[in-house]
Every structure is written in C-alpha cells, then in structure tokens.
C-alpha cells in the first residue's frame, strides 16, 4: 500500500492538510480536547488517525494518513508508518517551543525517516512569528540534518502539494 504519513504536534494542521488534497472528505478520529491547552484553543485532537487518499491515472490510490499528535499516542505512530513512503512533518509556529517540537518529532520518527525521507512544513507563521524559518534551519544544522523546510498554510492545497513534491524529490534523489 502506498501511503504518505503526516505527523506533528496537536494543532499543526495535519487533518487540514490531508483534507486539502484528499479526494474524499477525510475520515478523522477527532475528539474534543480535555486538557487546558486544547480547551483554551477550542480545538479537537486526533486520537487514532486521519485518513484520505487521491487516485492516480492507473487507478492506484495514494493513501494519506495523519497520526495523532501527542506522544501518548506513539503506538499509533509505529502502526501508521509501517509501509509508508515518506513523512510530512507539520509544525505549529504559534506553539510555545515549535523548534524543540521539530527536534522531538525528528527523533521520534528517526528510523522511519532514515529509511524513507521527511519534509517539514511550518504553519501559522502569520499568527505568531516568534520564530523564523532560519531558527528552524539553525536547529536542523545543529542536529546535522538538511531537510526541506517550508512555510505553509495547511488549508492551501498548493502549499501541501509543494511539501509532497519536495518529499518525492528527496526520495528520488536518494534512489539515484
């Protein structure tokens, strides 16, 4: 099964990103947040997975899976990444420590990334510009990574497509 995995912290736009390019209304397992952070933002959170797909010319479906964001659901990360072709990591620039979030997820998905590839999209930079892309880039440099990094609006299909384009570009480069 050909699937692309979307991950990142709660509120980064994983469900929205899948919805923006999926052919079907995404199947989402979202519930109301019960903790203070989530309730303050009046948000819902994914507790199992989000799912959508798009179909290629030869009727092959590319499946889009979104993971739950919080670490307590990390058993789902392992389940969902099995057989995935690559990872899209979305980060919410309006969270308190988004650069550290990036480091955390890159470490949590390290094995999957090493065997496939990752592309990073930073959302909500218009809401909060406390960190610039250079801050993320500096952190990546410190961690010894050169990953594609973009500012994106998860609601915009074009932005999500750029992420997938870049992901496929690095996967192809890895094969050549």
């Amino acid at each position: 099964m050909d699937k692309i995995i979307f991950t990142g912290p709660m509120g980064a736009g994983k469900t929205t990103a899948i919805a923006s390019i999926s052919e079907i209304p995404p199947i989402a397992t979202e519930v109301r947040c019960s903790d203070e952070e989530g309730q303050a933002r009046k948000e819902t959170t994914t507790v199992a997975m989000d799912y959508g797909y798009f179909t290629l010319d030869d009727s092959v479906r590319v499946h889009l899976y979104g993971t739950p964001g919080q670490e307590r659901f990390n058993y789902m990360w392992t389940i969902l990444t099995q057989g995935g072709i690559g990872l899209v990591l979305l980060l919410d620039n309006a969270r308190p420590t988004p650069v550290e979030d990036m480091a955390f997820y890159l470490d949590a998905f390290r094995e999957f990334i090493e065997t496939t590839g990752v592309v990073i999209g930073v959302t909500r930079m218009d809401v909060n510009n406390q960190f610039s892309l250079d801050d993320y880039r500096d952190k990546l440099f410190e961690l010894g990574h050169i990953y594609p990094l973009f500012e994106v609006d998860a609601r915009q299909a074009e932005d999500v497509k750029i992420l997938i384009h870049a992901l496929l570009a690095i996967l192809q480069a890895n094969m050549e």
């Binding site: 199947i27 989402a28 397992t29 979202e30 507790v47 199992a48 307590r72 659901f73 058993y75 789902m76």
Partner: peptide, 21 residues
C-alpha cells in the same frame, strides 16, 4: 494501565468512526 487509557480512547474513537461510516 497508563497506555491502556490512551489506547481505549483510540479504539473507542475508531469504533465511533466505523459505526458512523
């Protein structure tokens, strides 16, 4: 039982999604 609590939410949510579908 900590993990069971989280898995319970995952499974119930999946169950709700399946029955709604």
């Amino acid at each position: 039982l900590e993990r069971l609590a989280t898995m319970g939410s995952t499974l119930m949510s999946l169950g709700d999604t399946i029955t709604a579908e």
